[in-house]
Design a protein around this nucleic acid. Structure first.
Lengths: 162, 162
DNA sequence: CAAAATAAGACTGATTCAGTCTTACTATAT
DNA sequence: ATATAGTAAGACTGAATCAGTCTTATTTTG
């Protein structure tokens, strides 16, 4: 017998749409925000954070490992160890967290980091989509962890190249 | 023996990231842009458009069917039939096309159209992500098909609620 | 009536994602 | 020193989704 639905957030559900954060990226944001709130206190262990939000401890550990790899958090081994933010919450963007876990944010496979399509170039929407992609990157990099810990404030303006 | 790599754009490749348009949505944008360019001329058949970009005809047909369902294009049956845009290219946004094919654009499962998470609400990032989601919707709805058929112009400004 | 087109749905293989498990390593605290 | 509590890392599994195909029916023109 295998445990199918093991924690609150549940197993995979019908997606309903593309354009979605992976759950791991989601968990990463939760973890980083948690660390931001408990900053200056003790280091938080993966299990501690996981328990707080009803997420599997080992899964949260994996997420935090990736964040540590990208130097967004620092890990302290041993008992009473755990994770702490490596930077100020205002210096960490949502994009930092998401791309640390899921890799680069690209809305199409055409828009690679080198700018070339993965196939013969008859595709006519590559360039327009590249501009859309940049706008989304701008949005994600504008939102910081410290902002995510506050209430809504002044709307910022993001340039959208059309 | 089965034909594995049947058309130019190729079969599935490692994704490398979340936050990506489905290929069908991509094909939808290509098709709509094509129809915009050949506007006022004859109706374009699915096979005609598919052939132009090296995409499977039946697959392109399915994409166009979804677009017709959402009244973005109109279908004409019979020989010398095909598809035509139902609106002006300036009245069709990238968001229209993408959501017609993939469903509503939601960056997390938490951010449903009803605004409530699919699980117990300990999630602390739901509200910030909802605001990010809105910004992305704004970006996508700002880009029109007519803009995608032009060269880059003036940057537009999109409000980002932080 | 035949040809060419759309319409719609079932089906398949590949891929990816979420989550688990296991093993090894490391540092703290008593 | 040694037990303990933690991180580190990778293999593994089941489920879900996606891309694409195939088949059958329907509609319209010529």
């Amino acid at each position: 017998m295998r445990l199918i639905q093991s924690h609150i957030l549940g197993s995979r559900k019908p997606r309903g749409t593309m354009f979605k954060l992976s759950k791991k990226a989601d968990y990463g944001l939760i973890a980083v925000k948690h660390l931001a709130l408990h900053r200056q206190q003790h280091a938080c262990s993966a299990s501690e954070i996981a328990g707080e939000y009803g997420i599997s401890a080992t899964l949260m550990a994996k997420v935090l490992q990736k964040l540590a790899h990208r130097s967004l958090v620092v890990a302290r081994h041993g008992s009473s160890g755990g994770y702490q933010l490596a930077k100020e919450p205002s210096q960490i963007s949502a994009l930092d967290v998401i791309s640390a876990i899921d890799g680069p944010v690209l809305i199409t496979s055409c828009v690679t980091s080198h700018g070339n399509c993965d196939a013969t170039e008859r595709c006519s929407v590559k360039e327009p989509l590249r501009r859309v992609n940049e706008s989304i990157l701008t949005v994600l990099s504008t939102v910081t962890i410290s902002q995510m810990s506050e209430e809504p404030q002044e709307p910022a303006l993001v340039a959208l190249r059309t």
